[in-house]
Design a protein around this nucleic acid. Structure first.
Lengths: 227, 227
DNA sequence: ACATTTTTGTTATATAGATAACAGACGTAA
DNA sequence: TTACGTCTGTTATCTATATAACAAAAATGT
């Protein structure tokens, strides 16, 4: 169900992505299509970046490293997401997060000015992107609430369920995540220590709520409904 | 300095707010100007709302009450902010937060469809609002990072400084907040217990970093720079 | 096939902060 | 002025989770 909704929402984007790149370049000079491989970076925290990135295919991880050296994963995004530097924060043009490809990633990169032009010409598309950014804002807000009021156990559940909605593939038990996450990565995502996450995951596994190997996490979503 | 920047940014909005309401109503039938008094609510968590609210004057508090009954203040917003329901989340049209006026508040209210129309006609304004929403997204992200990695002490500092940038009035010691906050409200804002917040505030006061009465909080911002 | 690195599972200890409880201060309505 | 409700300040106790440390397992490179 979440997958279907996802597809509907990206129809407009597909139309955009499917049209000829050359044609786009005529109007928006700076636009370029780029492919990068697994674990490569789109940009780093602190970069003085004034471009906008638009994920055409693949999955990326946005993380931030605090001054104390703690890595925090802000979110994981897929096809259709717009990231980079499109706000007018003259004070600091440095991006606040590092973006890394999980698997192969294919994206468009264009200057902020061209992005702005594109947004004003294509109002339907602009509205769509506006909604996407706003939905992301809402997700962070929900995350903040969950993290501030729920114990690690719940945060792990919430995080995995959210991921499974976006990157889950239906499998025999429920949803298998199409991305590989180590326990440390899960910990960074839920803002907890790896050891606690390990214990929590084991506990869930022994209760049959999920299963995992080093390769893959598989969630029995039915067993979480009573949350 | 933050105040000046704020003013620059809202020039466009001012132009919009200053123009004749009747004129706007001709194009956007649903638009209405509304005034509400102190402590009144714009809308409540769970309301099935499909309108967009645009703060013309005053300050509002967005909070969420968890199932366990814990109140969490997501943010405090002022003039120029756009809130309400403008995303396309067909799954749940219910808003996730309660919005309350701190002091007198004056705002425009319009149907989502009109808001969308307005956004497509006035591309400059649309871009401006897009940036505003995005800036708010960034703020929540920063908040999430701070709250997940910093102790209550730091969260209080960060929160008060952020508020003073937006709602601070220059006074003899530094910035006085033009909004009245009880310790409980500060606690809701920093996601901590009231008792700890109380101790922290007293500690800061005794160190001369801030001063407060039941009426007002006043921050000696200079003393926080070494953070 | 071996050495090295990365990931996992587990436990013992320490600690920030929640909770609860209460007294005093302040504000305000009668 | 009294009484009552709302805020504030403080402390004693409890708990979730961080930290640290280590061994086993798996992956990776040579």
């Amino acid at each position: 169900m979440p997958l279907i909704e996802n597809n509907l929402k990206s129809n407009l984007m597909n139309k955009f992505f499917d049209c000829d790149l050359k044609q786009l370049q005529a109007d928006y000079h700076s636009i370029k299509e780029i492919n990068i491989s697994k674990k490569a970076f789109l940009y780093h925290q602190g970069d003085r970046c004034s471009d906008v990135f638009w994920i055409k295919n693949g999955i990326v991880k946005l993380s931030h490293i605090t001054e104390e050296g703690i890595e925090m994963t802000m979110t994981i995004l897929g096809k259709g997401s717009v990231i980079g530097c499109f706000w007018n924060n003259s004070a600091s043009p440095e991006v606040e997060e590092t973006v890394q490809a999980l698997g192969e990633v294919n994206f468009y990169r264009l200057a902020k000015s061209d992005f702005k032009a594109l947004m004003s010409h294509q109002t339907e598309l602009a509205w769509h992107i506006f909604e996407e950014v706003n939905a992301r804002k809402q997700k962070v807000e929900r995350k903040l609430r969950t993290f501030l009021t729920q114990p690690v156990e719940m945060r792990v559940i919430a995080t995995l369920l959210e991921l499974s909605e976006i990157f889950g593939i239906k499998c025999t038990h429920g949803y298998a995540l199409e991305i590989h996450l180590t326990q440390q990565e899960v910990a960074d995502l839920v803002g907890a220590s790896r050891s606690v996450v390990s214990t929590v995951l084991n506990d869930f596994r022994s209760r049959g709520m999920l299963d995992y190997t080093r390769e893959q996490i598989c969630i029995n979503d039915a067993s979480f409904i009573n949350l």
